[in-house]
Design a protein around this nucleic acid. Structure first.
Lengths: 229, 229
DNA sequence: ACCTGAACACCGTTCAAGT
DNA sequence: ACCTGAACACCGTTCAAGT
């Protein structure tokens, strides 16, 4: 088959991709007693441990259960399937990052263009690298899940915060705030990921920390109506 | 290398993320007769078909073999494991994209900053979107493989082409070409991926096509020594 | 030289039986 | 309520037997 045929096939079968509806990824039932609450957190932490020590490819349900000190059956009482384990971990991680972005956007509300650009970039970099410097674990986890809804929620919150920040800049105005918001968010998320995946050495991180603020500032200045005052 | 050696290596590598050494991902043996050449291409194309019609999660070895019209045993004669199937598909796809970048870098050799920036960005966008507009298939494939070496090779070729292009710009100079090359490459790869993953609708693609050239140009102007002549 | 497909090992998931 | 772990279905991989 030629690659040119792939487009048609792709469009015809576009709806096949989501394997598991997002709703089904949440914990199966809420714990009602102290004992089971401890079980749930133990499973949650065991997932993180196995993920970091053994890697995504060797993360099996029995291994997580063993690490958590429970049987597989117990695990399935609270998490409907393996994906739910990972979903919970990713959910928590993404929330931390989004909160960091929202806080930065609030802190730099009304700040001048260059200052707020650097503040936003550094806040994102710090959040991404705080606990897992150079770790690709979140990306490998996300790749195995149907994260459409989760990611969509996260991006909506992020975009709302960034748009409000951009609108508050005193020394610049933007004709199309939605487009600039999209560009800035894509720039942050994309470059950090691409950078980490290609090379997560300290030297590469240093490059990223130096060049990304430059990229963001330069773009914002170029995109602002009539340049910076 | 004998396959029995690989199994030992696999078990020795028990403690780290890369599950399979990249060398082992290539086809197991070269076909010596016309019949088996046809078999290999049939398997290769069947992998693409199953990937696009059923998605990564439902791509099984038996399904690919069935689609290719051969038995599983035959498949394993040419591809040492499932990952090798996907590796071959990804390898071909990435090569197409890299060639497109290299061609663009040659074409815009000696062109002025803005012209060459736009040329490079558009060449990358066209290559990524030519056959699979908005498709995430390459990313989902890559996520399941140990692609360290493959990606490393691709990035090396890309960086060499971009660095040569940057050095040839007549109306601007760069103090640290390596850093700017890293930044431009990361910007291209990262933003396109992040954009596609968040929203692959025509509207989002249009935004990307408009904002990415702006980002790249603005960054290059800002990074050039003493500004554009 | 190339192909076949039953057999094996392993993993995700369930459920009857326990406290 | 909560937990257990043998049992089941499915998938990646192999190998003795075929042409």
């Amino acid at each position: 088959m030629l690659y040119s045929d792939m487009r048609i096939i792709l469009q015809l079968l576009h709806s096949h991709m989501p394997v598991v509806p997002t709703d089904a990824l949440k914990p199966r039932k809420s714990p009602r007693q102290a004992r089971s609450t401890a079980t749930v957190t133990a499973i949650h932490e065991a997932t993180i441990q196995v993920l970091l020590s053994d890697g995504m490819a060797r993360l099996t349900t029995t291994r997580v259960a063993q690490r958590a000190g429970v049987s597989v059956g117990t695990m399935y009482q609270y998490f409907p399937h393996k994906q739910a384990l990972l979903y919970a971990v990713l959910d928590q991680y993404l929330d931390e990052v989004v909160v960091a972005i929202e806080e930065a956007c609030t802190r730099y509300q009304g700040a001048r263009l260059c200052e707020m650009s650097d503040g936003l970039v550094n806040a994102y970099l710090n959040a991404k690298l705080r606990y897992l410097p150079g770790s690709l674990a979140p990306y490998t986890v996300a790749a195995d899940l149907d994260t459409a809804r989760l990611i969509s929620d996260v991006l909506q919150r992020t975009d709302r915060a960034i748009a409000r920040l951009l609108a508050s800049v005193p020394d610049a105005g933007f004709d199309d705030i939605a487009a600039v918001t999209f560009a800035v968010r894509t720039l942050l998320v994309g470059t950090v990921r691409a950078s980490l995946e290609s090379d997560s050495s300290p030297a590469a991180l240093a490059m990223l920390r130096k060049q990304l603020p430059l990229m963001c500032r330069a773009y914002l200045v170029a995109a602002s109506r009539g340049g910076v005052a």
